[in-house]
Design a protein around this nucleic acid. Structure first.
Length: 456
RNA sequence: GUGGUUGUAGCUCAGCUGGUUAGAGCGCCGGAUUGUGGUUCCGGAGGUCGCCGGUUCGAACCCGGUCUUCCACCCCA
């Protein structure tokens, strides 16, 4: 054998079965998106580096796949820059394009670029692959799909309510019961930071708080101290380290904690609006849970923050996330355009459904009838019958070679084709077909019309 | 990006403290059975042991590098 072929780290091939299962998830999400009034768009796999760089923080920039310029790209770089070995500076000279890192930033770019054609509020959905130069792990790939739905041009909180319903609708439809939709609000986090007098350390504070369930109160305290947040300040938020009870109880506690913070109070009000209305409307299978530790990385969130986790017992990171960003298009020059959106992580949902055996309903597209090939003459006769069957939407095919019957029947077995048609010299002569049911083994001689009736 | 882990036939895996022609099951191909499958029996093909280098009389096994897998951190879907 020649050199063994391989695919790059963190990428995958998908078999027919896997594609069928993935399509099942895609179509379920798509159906619900459209039910809620979203319209699809698509954007290029790669963007100008300028569009992407600096939008995901320093860490994000590192994880963006850069595309090398074509041509003799090193010629244009000054000698002293090359000698300096400054990767970041050199990269900006030799790479002007980069692979899409998420769907939100390209969407913001799209909105700004097409603002005159768009009807606002604009509700779009997008299901495309994104690429990250991350180290792969379970449920973590370098090429994976996101399924996003966003609304721009509206500040109404009903949108936030609808997204909770939408999450619930998709996961219920996929029979993935017991998911938890975690809800928080950036304004609450800001309010807390304000109260403890660490407003300038909001990011450090939230990142530390986000790790609560992972490293515990002690670990969080330590990390906050390391980041320069005072002990007195940490004591003020101590109640949050053990934040339990119903959503309404949590809201009350937050209200009290944040009375002196205008922003925090607004955050609690927003949160209460969502929680109250979801309680009024009800959910099918998901749980809604206020989680003040939730501080999804992307620092453009300004209002609601969502994160969905798999049912208890399934070891998987979040399978969806989202939130509101008041000024995402601002960086591209379009001010005052508020947006809110959510994302489904297709690949992780796949792994969760696989683990819980929830793919029963998915069937591989396969033919219903296989014509055994006896030779040129007989094959020609079968081809004519195939035209009729296919016109009647019966998936069918002729075995391409006049191979041994054992081989052809084996092929039908393996592909689980329920019917086989045998046409030899005598059938051709009498214009008849021998139809064999592969499950029962029964067979009968019939006309084309009967063949059609039985197999349809 | 940091630390660890994994790689032997198409697949799942054996392979002793380094020792001569590297094994099994499943799958594949052929035959028993040239118009009747899933069973059974018989036979066969398929591996520079991830790759490169080193130590050694001798390496799948030891050492270094590299790629890949999975895991923890970072970050995130």
């Amino acid at each position: 054998m020649a050199q063994k072929p391989s695919i790059p780290k963190g990428t995958r091939d998908f078999s027919p079965t896997e594609v069928a299962k993935r399509n099942y998830i895609f179509s379920t999400i798509k159906e619900v998106f459209e039910m809620y009034g979203f319209q699809p768009i698509e954007t290029p796999s790669f963007e100008n580096s300028l569009t992407l760089m600096g939008k995901y923080g320093e860490e994000g920039d590192r994880l963006i796949f850069k595309i090398l310029n074509s041509g003799d790209f090193l010629k244009k770089v000054e000698d002293d820059l090359l000698i300096s070995k400054d990767s970041i500076k050199i990269t900006s000279k030799i790479s002007e394009k980069a692979l899409r890192y998420d769907l939100t930033v390209p969407f913001a770019r799209y909105v700004v670029q097409h603002q005159n054609e768009i009807e606002f509020p604009f509700k779009r959905y997008q299901m495309q692959p994104v690429w990250r130069a991350d180290r792969p792990q379970k449920g973590r790939f370098r090429e994976f799909y996101q399924c996003d739905a966003d609304v721009v041009g509206s500040k109404g909180l009903w949108q936030e309510v609808e997204f909770v319903q939408l999450y619930d609708a998709v996961f219920s439809k996929l029979k993935l019961t017991g998911t938890t939709i975690k809800l928080n609000n950036r304004k609450i986090l800001a309010g807390i930071a304000e109260i403890i007098g660490a407003k300038d350390k909001l990011i450090d504070f939230t990142v530390a708080l986000d790790k609560l369930d992972k490293i515990g109160a002690e670990g969080v305290t330590k990390e906050m101290l390391d980041k320069g947040i005072s002990e007195a300040a940490i004591q003020k938020v101590e109640p949050l380290f053990n934040f339990k009870g119903s959503n309404q109880e949590k809201l009350k506690q937050l209200q009290q904690l944040l009375t002196t913070s205008e922003e925090g109070t607004k955050g609690v009000e927003d949160l209460k609006f969502i929680v109250d209305n979801i309680e009024m409307l009800g959910l099918q299978t998901a749980n809604l849970d206020i989680d003040v530790t939730l501080a999804r990385g992307l620092n453009y969130y300004t209002g609601a923050i969502y994160e969905v986790t798999a049912p208890q017992g399934v070891k998987m990171g979040s399978i969806g996330g989202g939130g509101r960003y008041d000024d995402l298009t601002g960086i591209f020059g379009l001010k005052d355009m508020s947006g809110v959106g959510i994302s489904f992580g297709l690949d992780r949902i796949y792994l969760v459904l696989e683990e819980l055996n929830l793919f029963d309903a998915v069937e591989l597209p396969k033919p219903k009838v296989l014509f055994i090939n006896f030779g040129e003459k007989e094959a020609a006769f079968c081809m004519k019958a195939l035209v009729t069957l296919r016109k009647n939407h019966i998936k069918s095919e002729l075995y391409p070679d006049a191979a041994k019957m054992k081989k052809q029947l084996n092929y039908a077995n393996r592909r689980q084709i329920p019917y086989v048609v045998l046409v030899g010299a005598s059938e051709v002569e009498n214009n008849k077909y021998t139809l064999k049911n592969m499950q029962t083994g029964e067979q009968q001689v019939c006309t084309l019309k009967e063949l059609l009736e039985i197999t349809s």
